[in-house]
């Protein structure tokens, strides 16, 4: 009869291996968050100096103290807002379709196209919007920019919505159908609410993602150091992301500092959006626990 004491099965070696691997995994996890923390800290250090009253209320001054990015803040809100208005309904509804009715050839095609669209470089989407809207309407406009951003959002929102809705257990659908609730009401009043926290999180992340897009905007809204055009269908506009690119390339150090300030603001907006998504749905998952 063998004793449970002693070391015939290499218990000591196994224990040591366990320590080594745990430490390794821990270090890798730390390495993964170092760049993120570094970026945030670095951007804050570089950008904090630019934040004063004028930064939020003034316009960029290429000569002198650099001015502010009021037009970029307003432009970001307008363009990202418009893109959200256009992209979210289409994306969410397409996702619901794919999850609930998409097990057919058409669904497969849509899913494949959405996946392909996710991988298309944003500059290509930008030049598409340029060719489609800017050329045909005769000029750069906030609308053209938001169409480009919406096109970038739609496939991402579609696929996240589909995945989240697929996570809703079939037993919930059965419960509703078994009560004599019609299919569309089951989807609208039972399935979607159950998946809502996930859908909203996906939408917010997609919005945060396009808020940082720059390349397609160069081709659609052009950028400006003056107040953005009041007409969204005509006249150049600008956003924080575009200003980081354009002001950051200026020779004057004061102007470059304003670009850093804009970078800090953009990072905080994106971070704030993610935190918001978590706070709203704290502790909720698709199972609603």
């Amino acid at each position: 009869m063998s004793s449970i004491h002693g070391n015939p099965s290499g218990y000591g070696r196994r224990k040591l291996m366990d320590r080594v691997m745990t430490t390794l995994a821990y270090l890798c996890a730390a390495a993964a968050i170092i760049p993120l923390t570094w970026i945030i800290v670095y951007v804050v250090i570089k950008g904090l100096g630019a934040w004063d009253a004028e930064f939020f209320t003034g316009l960029p001054q290429l000569f002198g103290d650099g001015g502010g990015v009021r037009n970029g803040i307003v432009g970001t809100l307008v363009i990202v807002g418009l893109a959200t208005l256009m992209g979210v309904p289409i994306g969410v509804m397409a996702g619901i379709y794919l999850a609930e009715y998409g097990n057919n050839r058409f669904g497969t095609v849509v899913r494949f196209l959405a996946d392909t669209m996710t991988g298309i470089p944003s500059i290509v989407v930008g030049i598409f919007a340029f060719g489609l809207i800017v050329v045909n309407t005769g000029g750069f406009s906030a609308f053209a920019g938001s169409v480009a951003l919406a096109l970038l959002m739609i496939p991402v929102i579609t696929r996240t919505t589909e995945e989240i809705i697929r996570l809703v257990p079939d037993s919930i659908r059965e419960a509703s159908l078994g009560l004599g609730v019609s299919r569309w009401k089951t989807i609208l009043r039972v399935v979607v609410p159950t998946a809502l926290s996930g859908i909203v999180t996906g939408v917010l992340l997609a919005v945060a993602r396009v808020a940082g897009e720059t390349a397609p905007l160069i081709l659609t809204i052009l950028g400006t150091n003056f107040p953005i055009s009041a007409n969204i269908f005509d006249g150049p506009s600008t956003t924080l992301s575009l200003q980081i690119y354009q002001l950051g390339a200026q020779p004057s150090p004061e102007v470059v500092e304003v670009a850093w300030g804009a970078a800090m603001l953009l990072v905080l907006i994106v971070l704030g959006t993610s935190i918001l998504a978590r706070v709203i749905f704290r502790g909720q998952s698709v199972r609603g626990r």
Partner: peptide, 8 residues
């Protein structure tokens, strides 16, 4: 078979 109250 399994209890399935609506989670929301």
């Amino acid at each position: 078979q399994k209890p399935n109250p609506f989670p929301t």
